[in-house]
């Protein structure tokens, strides 16, 4: 018996619907159809009236979630692709994110964003938008890399009294499997050491964790031990775990699938340089997707985002300088 990353998201939602009458799901095609990726498969039948099809109106979907949260409910909004959430961006960053600060009324809504690239996805079905959401105060941004985290962090997201942007990676939906669902988990806001090592630290998150682990495995054959930190949550960032790792290794490479400008990598490097400059034996490095829209053709896409091979190259460079 095994469970995929996508099934874990479905199971987390089933658990939430079963155990919390305040939870409902709203999004395009989430009802009888079960969602574009089947993340809500059969939930409309199991929980009548609580898994609701929305018109193609991301602004109204998210705005209505804020109203429902004020009334004490805990909506989960499924946006079909993270890329489309920009249509509802205003409601998330201006309405949801400011509500508690302005009125002391919490805004417990969870925005599920199927994120990141898959082969053939192209410019508008592939984006990673965690950094633009993380920029706004009042939002929590989760980026689970494992089946276990997809499950436990989604449950915790809905339990929190704040708006959460839950960036689930489409590349992991079907390929990533675990034996069973977790019984316990690290909380949101805590990073995880995905692999221990003494020679350098890679800080990464979401699907890139797996590329980094593959790179670390290959580098280990040459006797190089890379420590891989999985951020799990990009806002807040667990700076303590990052600094502690850099203190052990003296070298830092940041890897993210999103675009480079002002992103998570930039934030991590900025914090390490500001708070742990003396721990560094070499200038921190980063790899991101190329600074262009995301290409459609698999051959172009294969070099657009970081891969195990480009991470290895960057690691070897970092170890030389």
């Amino acid at each position: 018996m095994s469970i995929t990353y996508l099934e874990a998201i479905r199971e987390a939602q089933a658990y939430l619907l079963k155990n919390d009458p305040r939870v409902y799901i709203y999004g395009q095609d989430v009802g009888a159809f079960g969602g574009a990726f089947k993340a809500t498969k059969n939930l409309a039948t199991e929980f009548p009236g609580r898994v609701i099809d929305a018109p193609i109106s991301e602004d109204a979907m998210i705005g209505s979630a804020v109203g429902a949260a004020i009334e004490g409910l805990r909506p989960i909004i499924e946006v079909q692709f993270a890329d489309f959430s920009t249509v509802g961006f205003n409601q998330m960053v201006n309405q949801a994110a400011t509500l508690f600060w302005r009125t002391e009324v919490p805004c417990p809504i969870t925005l599920r964003l199927p994120s990141g690239g898959t082969s053939g996805g192209g410019p508008f079905h592939s984006q990673c938008l965690e950094s633009i959401y993380a920029h706004f105060p009042g939002l929590i941004v989760c980026t689970p890399a494992t089946v276990e985290d997809a499950y436990s962090m989604l449950i915790e997201s809905v339990t929190l009294d704040d708006p959460v942007v839950f960036c689930e990676h489409k590349y992991l939906y079907f390929h990533l499997k675990a034996k069973s669902l977790p019984q316990e988990a690290l909380p949101i806001g805590k990073a995880r050491i995905a692999r221990e090592g003494r020679d350098m630290t890679i800080v990464t998150y979401s699907a890139m964790v797996h590329e980094c682990l593959e790179a670390a495995k290959e580098m280990a054959q040459d006797g190089i031990q890379i420590e891989v930190v999985d951020l799990r949550t990009v806002k807040p960032i667990d700076t303590d775990t990052i600094i502690a790792s850099v203190a052990r290794t003296g070298r830092l490479l940041c890897v993210a699938e999103e675009w480079p400008w002002g992103g998570v990598n930039a934030e991590v490097i900025s914090r390490v340089v500001a708070e742990g400059f003396n721990l560094l034996d070499a200038p921190p490095q980063r790899i991101n997707a190329k600074d262009t829209p995301i290409p459609y053709h698999p051959r172009l896409w294969s070099v657009h985002r970081p891969t195990a091979q480009s991470i290895i190259a960057a690691s070897r460079h970092l170890l030389r300088i």
Partner: peptide, 29 residues
């Protein structure tokens, strides 16, 4: 908001769906 009076943001039209959501929630409850 707890007493039913929403605190408007400056973006025009953005309050309408917030009211919608509160009404949907009342119906669900």
């Amino acid at each position: 908001p707890r007493e039913g009076c929403m605190a408007m943001i400056s973006h025009l039209g953005a309050s309408i769906s917030v009211v919608n959501g509160a009404l949907m929630a009342k119906r669900m409850k």
